[in-house]
Nucleic acid binder design. Sequence first.
RNA 1: GGCGGCGUAGCCAAGUGGUAAGGCAGUGGACUGCAAAUCCACCAUGCAUCGGUUCAAAUCCGAUCGCCGCCUCCA
Length: 477
Amino acid sequence: MKLYNSLTRLKEEFEPLSEPNVGVYVCGPTVYGHSHLGHGKSYVSFDVLIRYLRHLGYNVRYIQNITDVGHLTDDADAGEDKIEKQARLEKLEPMQIAEKYTRSYFDDMDALGILRPDVSPRASGHIPEQIELIKVLIENGHAYEVDGYVYYSVASFPGYGKLSGRKLDDLVAGARVSIDQGKRDPKDFALWKKAGDDHILKWNSPWGWGYPGWHLECSAMAMRYIGDTLDIHGGGLDNIFPHHESEIAQSEGANGKQFVRFWLHNNMVTVDGQKMGKSLGNFTFLKDIFEKYNPMVVRLYILRSHYRSPLDFSDMGLDSAKSGLGRLIAFRSRLGQKPLETDQEPSKETAILIENTRTAFHEFMNDDINTPGALASIFELIRAGNGILDRDDTPPDRAALAIIMDELARDILGLDLTGGNSSTEETAVLCGILAQTRGILRENRMFEATDLMRDKLEAIGYTAKDLPGGKSEITRK
RNA sequence: GGCGGCGUAGCCAAGUGGUAAGGCAGUGGACUGCAAAUCCACCAUGCAUCGGUUCAAAUCCGAUCGCCGCCUCCA
């Protein structure tokens, strides 16, 4: 499998450091508000990566942090902690805010069919690790303390800028960060910040009461749960600088080993061509979208574009994805919900179709997780599969098509296609009775009654469809 | 200003040298009492514009125009 590595700016063949284990770390959310579509895109993208790696047989350890301290609202040292600020607004304890929005985050991610990370470490739960890391960096000469603050000396790490392509000189010129608290160089960033009396989230340290800088937690927790070198580190494009650049400086500065082998970055969600972000205030919460659309619509919408391309948000786009999902669900539903028990082989035509689909699907996925292409292969399977079943519908063909659909669409792309069939046994029986009645009415050409039945059923979300041969079928839309 | 990316049909979107995937919408046909679903057919002689390299360019090179991201917290 090839993955685009932001570090080398090349698609490279992925091989883990020690087969079959793969250590993946993805920057998680800062939990001071509900998740928006941008979070959805990011975590759906990495979810598919994780699912595919596991499908290929790798033993993946997936770590995704929860930032509940240290993330400031403003530039380097002047801002307020985001969690504390939100706590003030909602009149809650900071840790209540963190807990509230952590739960909200997982609710939304669960709805999107995103598999939970193996570990979701909290920054506030790993202060000792972060303090230890700072100590090492001070000993190494990469960090220095000034009056309760500890700064990373960017000039001490020659590799600074290798991920973002930034030159140190340009950084100085562009730096809007004020020189304060005795910082030796405007490029330097804080590892530990002194906390005043008004600060609630604070810990004791060798440098007095304070709290960690934002970049530090990811270095500390990634190394704690995976080791010195990660196979893959993911995150949003907007975190390349300064966050990921600083993670490299911290981790490699501490132990001299390569921190990350593959850096993967997903592109942004835009609204009217502009980035969806909290600072612009143009974000749409996932919860609001879910009011109107099945979360699987959102997942499909995200997967229809490549993770490294921007995704422009629009209702038209969601409507289009909704129609597409309907087609996926209809096809899967046609194949039967329970795997058919059959020893018979599918027809040769079906077997060839399935093999071609599998090959095409994997070629797309192996090329830097090309989900639009992978989806295209599934839609081609649907068209051809429907054609086969229209001509000759046999249980072995249906079973074989169901298996490939579940493997590709459900297990790898994470699309739950059971949507239309969440009915209980009782409603299934009732639908059967209505269908039978409809058949009799049609037989007697009582179309006024059949049309009325269809309209009423439509109104409550059911579809009446008449099959060749006089039989009818009532299903949930 | 520095660094990076993008511009493909009405909309969305793959495709990095060999002659334009797929989805949505639309059109015609089959099927139907009418529908829905499904199938078949059609739907970009052209990939922002102009030039160049090549037997061959959406793909490589140059220029131009337009858009976006990062450089400050953001997935």
